[in-house]
Write a protein that binds this DNA or RNA. Structure first.
Lengths: 148, 148
DNA sequence: GGCTGGAATGAGAAGATTTCGCATTTAGAA
DNA sequence: TTCTAAATGCGAAATCTTCTCATTCCAGCC
């Protein structure tokens, strides 16, 4: 039961929090903005205020239930933590997101932090590119493609 | 002369663009938000509208003169491109930013993009942690530290 | 060196995302 | 069931960024 997950995370098992957590678990979308969660819940007949969505997602992040990402858009997207860490490769044309894990990169990151004297708390690696479908399709480009 | 740099980048050499470019070159801060550029120019007696700062920085980005970063704050920061690529390690307490290059990571990123069928256009690697000074100092923590 | 057309700028409004303040409701323990 | 602190909902507000459009400026041409 999800309410146990919330309690374990140190959060009171309120209805809005349960709805949000259940929705994140059941959605086939892995990466969702606060707005998207809000609208999806609305459509499902579950009314949760937008401010609450933001508050709850931030609490979930602090509790380690979700991770907040800053892709090259203007807003945060959230992803349910399923245990395994991974990084992301994002299509700059269609927004598609694929995931990958690379142990070599992981290891070198730790080593770099250590060399610099940092106590590493987190890291984020985003590869941007044109996904296979968009390469076949060709076509217009977005601002993000103009980067160095 | 900077106006040549602008022309070469395909941009008309206007006064605001020159001021902004010169400022980025002369500043000892490597990473600046639009707001910071705006205020710094104001203090230097160079009045450039904030909207222009945003427009120009976006053009500079498209022209490859600067790179836009999304650290874990709510806004973009810009960095003058000096040729060499590098990644960043950011202190979650004080905001200090160090840079590093790791050829192994670079190579693996290319390989991953290739394996996934992506045509890589860019990538961003941020390591977050507590910098040596803040580790010595101890003390309060920020939201970003609560991540997975 | 002045003239001209189209591009660039400035100022403020507007848009987008996120947070805040506070009255009301709710979870969970007594 | 009753109670209290915590959570929620709503709208206002804060923050960051883009847009609109009248005015100004750059660059080529005389």
């Amino acid at each position: 039961m999800e309410s146990q997950d919330l309690k374990r995370a140190g959060l009171k098992a309120t209805l809005p929090r349960l709805k949000i957590l259940r929705f994140l678990e059941e959605s086939d979308q892995r990466h969702m903005s606060a707005e998207e969660v809000y609208k999806a819940l609305l459509e499902a007949g579950e009314e949760v205020g937008l401010a609450t969505i933001y508050r709850v997602l931030t609490q979930f992040e602090a509790a380690g239930l979700v991770t907040r990402h800053h892709f090259d858009e203007g807003h945060s997207v959230f992803e349910l933590n399923l245990g395994e860490h991974h990084d992301h490769i994002v299509c700059v044309r269609c927004g598609r997101v694929d995931e990958f894990v690379d142990e070599v990169i992981e290891a070198r990151q730790h080593r770099i932090a250590e060399e610099k004297g940092y106590e590493m708390t987190d890291h984020a690696l985003y590869i941007y590119g044109v996904c296979p479908e968009c390469r076949k399709a060709g076509g217009r480009r977005t601002r993000a493609e103009g980067r160095g």
